[in-house]
């Protein structure tokens, strides 16, 4: 019989509650995915304000849970386990989700699984594309993370191959958007502006691609500065800034480095599958370029649909389902949130 897993996510500015059914054949089915976002409250600050996010999580947690059960047509007594993001993320934000998950698990008398947010971004793909072939590689790109991961077992064996040494890719989008007077968060408006631009118009630098640079690490801080210099130069000459060309050329530089390194890592490791996930995976140029380069290299590319790529509770429920199916011991009810939880710790 299928087991119902409830997943709670509160690591940043989205309060997510998801419900999945874990079937005996190893497939995991999405039943509900409700998200309440505080993104609009952060917009005028140009980034997520932790105290505002934590306050919003507290307000949204129980109403979002209600909505998830209504959407799935389930009652709380149907739940067989509760999974929650234990980290990494903002301490005060994580605390709200972890506290709620403990209370639900205690009241329903079911096991609690405190799991890794980053692993959740990979596990969510199984809701759309079925069980993950392993080993596989995952490129995780969002406002807070940019990592290249090797997955030998989604329920327990994930290793980092590379990560950003400074800004996350999504952070670079936010900063460049601000430079171009585009709204926060910067991903969608830059993607839109870039559609009318020439990606080859400006040769922005490709960070960390020199012969002496770490092969699979990333850097986006220099790119952001290069864009700022270019824009200030144009303004200084009294020229109108060609927003579409700047957006397209910036986006090309980001997508080029991300996909080149991911495909090279997969090829060198002899791994046949690449998963691209996280909020930036919704970027149209990143997905197009990833598709082209994976096809050339003979690598299967899996990108969850945009709704699943951004933070949500279903990804945590999906990971909880895999961890439970693997027979791992549930977390203790004195579990603490861990803002710096390392990626190789899938279950706390």
């Amino acid at each position: 019989m299928a087991k119902i897993i409830m997943g709670i996510e509160s690591s940043c500015d989205e309060t997510g509650v998801g419900l999945v059914a874990a079937h005996d054949d190893g497939t995991v089915e999405l039943l509900a995915d409700e998200v309440a976002s505080s993104v609009e409250q952060h917009a005028r600050f140009g980034g997520v304000v932790p105290e505002i996010a934590s306050r919003a999580h507290l307000e949204a947690m129980v109403p979002t849970t209600h909505r998830a059960f209504d959407a799935a047509g389930l009652s709380m007594s149907d739940v067989d386990a509760v999974a929650v993001t234990a980290g990494p993320g903002l301490a005060g934000a994580l605390l709200v989700g972890v506290s709620a998950a403990k209370a639900y698990a205690a009241a329903l008398d079911v096991p609690l699984y405190g799991v890794n947010h980053l692993a959740g971004h990979i596990a969510v793909d199984t809701l759309q594309h079925g069980p993950l072939p392993t080993p596989c590689l995952a490129l995780l790109v969002s406002g807070g993370h940019t990592q290249l991961l090797r997955v030998d077992d989604i329920a327990g064996a994930i290793t980092e191959i590379g990560s950003t040494v400074d800004d996350a890719a999504g952070e670079a989008y936010d900063k460049v958007a601000r430079l171009l007077d585009l709204p926060y968060p910067g991903g969608p408006p830059i993607d839109k502006a870039a559609r009318d631009g020439d990606p080859q118009a400006i040769a922005f630098p490709r960070g960390m691609t020199g012969p002496r640079d770490a092969k699979f690490d990333f850097s986006f801080s220099g790119l952001k500065t290069a864009v700022a210099r270019w824009v200030e130069g144009a303004q200084g000459r009294g020229e109108e800034v060609p927003v579409a060309d700047v957006a397209a050329s910036f986006q090309e530089a980001v997508a080029d480095v991300l996909t080149a390194k991911a495909v090279r890592a997969a090829t060198e490791a002899g791994v046949g599958t690449l998963v691209v996930s996280g909020g930036v995976a919704a970027n149209s140029r990143l997905s197009t370029l990833a598709r082209e380069r994976c096809a050339e290299a003979g690598i299967e590319l899996r990108i969850p649909r945009p709704r699943l790529c951004t933070d949500n509770g279903a990804m945590i429920a999906a990971l909880g389902a895999h961890v439970a199916a693997a027979g791992h011991k549930p977390s203790s009810l004195d579990l603490s949130a861990n803002p710096g939880l390392p990626v190789d710790t899938v279950l706390v």
Partner: peptide, 18 residues
């Protein structure tokens, strides 16, 4: 304390599930 929210969300979730 940021822990103030721990009490409130725990109370709300317990009450909801009970």
């Amino acid at each position: 304390y940021t822990g103030l929210r721990a009490g409130l969300v725990t109370g709300a979730a317990l009450a909801h599930s009970l």
